[in-house]
């Protein structure tokens, strides 16, 4: 997140290198499924990297895309939105609504040259502690490969 000076285009910033770059991933977890899934991962002592920072929301259907944009603009390297599987939403259909909003957002950011994989929408049920840990592992790996969020290279955020 530290930007000392505006780097020239294509210049490799020191923390760009895979390996010593530790990405920061923000996750919006639905209270009923994914947050409980994350709890289960904890209860089952499934280790995953500490790069992931969760925010509990009531439902993925309550995740305003503005939150995701804000997180990315503030310098998050990836954002996860995770909720109940289709059909299992605690609030009947929140996850379907989220899917639309996230699809729109992804399309926009894709057009802005931001890798589509920086935003992930995942269905993780409360019993899928393993899936939760796997998802985080995978995201960290993938984000490391993609490198830091290019927005961070810009001054304004």
């Amino acid at each position: 997140m530290v930007t000392e000076a505006q780097p020239k285009e294509n210049e490799v910033v020191s923390d760009d290198k895979e390996g010593d770059f530790e990405p920061k991933i923000i996750g919006f977890l639905c209270n009923w499924c994914s947050y409980t899934g994350a709890d289960l991962a904890g209860v089952s002592r499934l280790q995953y990297p500490p790069n992931f920072i969760p925010i509990r929301v009531m439902c993925t259907g309550a995740v305003d895309p503005v939150y995701v944009i804000k997180a990315l603009l503030e310098g998050a390297d990836s954002v996860l939105v995770a909720g109940c599987h289709p059909g299992d939403c605690h609030y009947l259909s929140g996850n379907f609504k989220a899917r639309r909003r996230i699809a729109i957002l992804k399309k926009l950011l894709e057009n802005l040259g931001l890798e589509e994989r920086r935003i992930r929408l995942e269905w993780i049920s409360a019993s899928e502690g393993q899936k939760f840990a796997d998802t985080v592992n995978e995201m960290v790996k993938e984000t490391k490969k993609m490198g830091p969020n290019p927005i961070k290279k810009e001054w304004d955020i």
Partner: peptide, 25 residues
Amino acid sequence: EKRKVVRMPIDTTLYHIGRMNHMIT
């Protein structure tokens, strides 16, 4: 302090992407 440099006016990018997200459909 956190970011060393903040480009002003603040939240311009958030406004543009956010507004686009709100009404582009």
